[in-house]
């Protein structure tokens, strides 16, 4: 069960609209390594998490990603306020405007609509957590590239916050992977999928192998 809190995780206060910038930042909403994909990934994966620490971290990071969806949406909203038709045409924002006006639509900067084809939920906690580590790095580098594309301090400040969260999440997913491995056979983590193989079944697999 979820509840909504009527506030941003970190403030977004952008004085100067800039539709060119909105066109690239939208990738962190609905792009291949965006926040919507991150939330969907972790909140789907948690059902295959076999250990309480891992269920907790996937739930809590997944929930924080929803707050990041809101922050990116707030950035996009503020970057596309009060635009004249002339500004829309000159900035190249017209290709978005024609379908969505200045509404928030999750898509990549390339124009590809949001898709779960860029995320996985494998039912195998080692594979899932390894994907999550990569996902946090990919989101971090996307924020690095966004920071290369703007010198507006009003935009850079919340983007830097989001970038730092990617690194914190990477570290916590590292812990979650360690917890998972510590619960498995150190000689062969892959002999047993703790989300699928059951204790007795595992014994059967071993006896069959012998």
């Amino acid at each position: 069960m979820w509840n909504y809190e009527k506030r941003l995780e970190y403030p977004v206060k952008i004085k100067n609209p800039c539709p060119e910038l909105a066109k690239v930042i939208i990738s962190q909403l609905g792009g291949p390594d965006g926040e919507l994909g991150a939330a969907t990934r972790y909140l789907s994966q948690r059902y295959a998490a076999p250990y309480s620490e891992v269920k907790g971290i996937l739930t809590d990071i997944g929930t924080e990603e929803l707050a990041h969806v809101e922050m990116i949406s707030a950035i996009l909203y503020q970057l596309t306020r009060n635009l004249s038709i002339d500004e829309i045409k000159k900035s190249g924002f017209d290709t978005y405007f024609v379908d969505h006006t200045t509404g928030i639509y999750p898509m990549a900067a390339s124009g590809t609509p949001f898709s779960t084809s860029t995320i996985q939920s494998t039912g195998d906690p080692i594979a899932d957590l390894t994907e999550d580590l990569a996902a946090e790095q990919k989101a971090r580098l996307t924020y690095d590239n966004i920071l290369r594309l703007t010198d507006d301090p009003d935009v850079r400040d919340p983007i830097k916050f989001l970038r730092a969260r990617e690194i914190a999440h990477f570290q916590r997913f590292g812990d979650a992977l360690r917890v998972t491995r510590d619960n498995l056979d150190s000689k062969n983590f892959y002999a047993f999928n703790p989300a699928f193989d059951k204790k007795n079944k595992y014994k059967n697999i071993n006896s069959r192998r012998r």
Partner: peptide
């Protein structure tokens, strides 16, 4: 919330 109590006990090696 998505699991029954028994689910949590049958994964330990």
């Amino acid at each position: 919330p998505w699991e029954n109590m028994e689910d949590c006990n049958n994964v330990e090696l």
